[in-house]
Simulated scan of single mutants.
Amino acid sequence: MTPQSLTLGYVPGGTPAKWARIWAERHPDVPLQLQAVAAAEAADAVRDGTVDVTLLRLPADTSGLAVIPLYEETPVAVVPTDHVVSAADEITTADLDGEPTLLPLDSVIEWARTVGAPIEHRPETTEAAVELVAAGLGALVVPQSLARLHHRKDLTYRPITDAPSCAVALAFSEGEPSELVEEFVGIVRGRRPGSSRGQTQPAPKRTAREKALAKQAARAAAGKVAHKPGRPKRR
């Protein structure tokens, strides 16, 4: 019997709204349940059946899962609005040399070397770390989506040009996916309604941000490094 709903997990900062909207348009009789999951628990949520498919950040233990890379997130430094680095549009890791930095226990960025001067206390969550940044204890490096999620008027953030990017992917159980999971994967890949499996079409042009992400993914696949996304073409 075909399941009557599909559960999509998403990590903090994940943005499944566009796909949820398309799903609702195409399958109004099959609810798409959205469930927030902690970054460290996203893969397990699929393995234990809590969710059918999930947005997660890499690297992660994805054993037993099929993984579809989606896009790379820009890392940013979150600082008070009057911090010296806020005077620049973007910074490098060298600009944080000697700067007290916070490293929450749920950090999703893997560093090859220490950045700034990490303080001994490690807050349990990114949200708690943001509160400590506001209190003046140090800077915090997170994917841009998390900086937006925990935005405060007394804080700002700046892109770090030489920090490792943060990969976001879609994951579901290995093996033959269910019809509903296959349909959702098709939506994520830009498959048009009625297309057979594997016959994908370019996603409809929508926002400038979506166009920029598509160009970024294309450059990454070609092995090129793009410092800034190009302007979307006018039609």
Rank of each mutant, 00 (worst) to 15 (best):
Q144I: 09
A45K: 03
F172P: 04
P59V: 00
H150T: 03
A66V: 01
V108W: 01
V53P: 01
D61N: 10
A171R: 00
T126Q: 11
P59H: 01
A135E: 07
D61R: 06
L58A: 07
L103H: 15
A117K: 14
V108T: 10
T74L: 04
A77N: 05
A39T: 08
L105T: 15
D48S: 11
S107F: 09
I68D: 14
L140Y: 10
V78P: 07
V85D: 00
P143I: 01
Q144S: 12
A129K: 05
L155V: 09
R47G: 00
P75C: 03
T93N: 08
A128K: 09
E127Q: 13
V79H: 09
D162W: 04
V133Q: 03
A36F: 12
E176H: 08
V181R: 09
V79G: 03
S145R: 08
V51E: 04
E131C: 05
L146G: 09
E120S: 14
D48R: 12
T62N: 01
A117D: 15
L96C: 09
D89R: 14
A112H: 14
R57H: 15
Y157V: 08
S86I: 10
S178W: 05
A128S: 09
V115S: 04
Q144W: 08
L105S: 15
I109Q: 03
T62K: 08
V46T: 01
A40E: 09
T161Q: 11
P69W: 03
V53I: 15
W111D: 07
D61W: 05
A36H: 15
S86T: 05
L103C: 13
E176S: 10
P164Y: 01
T125E: 05
L146T: 11
T92Y: 08
E179R: 14
S63L: 13
V130I: 06
E99M: 11
P164D: 01
V168L: 12
A139H: 11
A139W: 12
V67R: 06
D48Y: 13
E120K: 13
I68A: 13
P59T: 06
A117W: 00
D154T: 04
C166A: 12
I91A: 08
A94N: 10
E124K: 14
P159M: 01
L140G: 07
A88K: 13
L155N: 03
A112L: 14
A147V: 07
G138N: 04
V78T: 11
A128H: 12
D97F: 02
T125N: 03
I68S: 13
T81F: 14
D48H: 13
T92W: 04
R47H: 01
I119N: 15
I109H: 05
D106Y: 04
T81K: 15
V141I: 13
T156D: 09
A94E: 10
Q144N: 12
G98H: 02
V181N: 10
E110S: 15
A169W: 07
H121Q: 15
R158C: 02
V51T: 04
P104K: 01
V168Y: 10
E176R: 11
G116P: 06
A36D: 15
D162F: 07
V53A: 06
A40W: 09
E41G: 05
A169V: 02
V181E: 08
S173R: 12
K153Y: 08
A38R: 07
R152Q: 10
R158D: 04
E110W: 10
P69G: 08
P69C: 02
A147N: 01
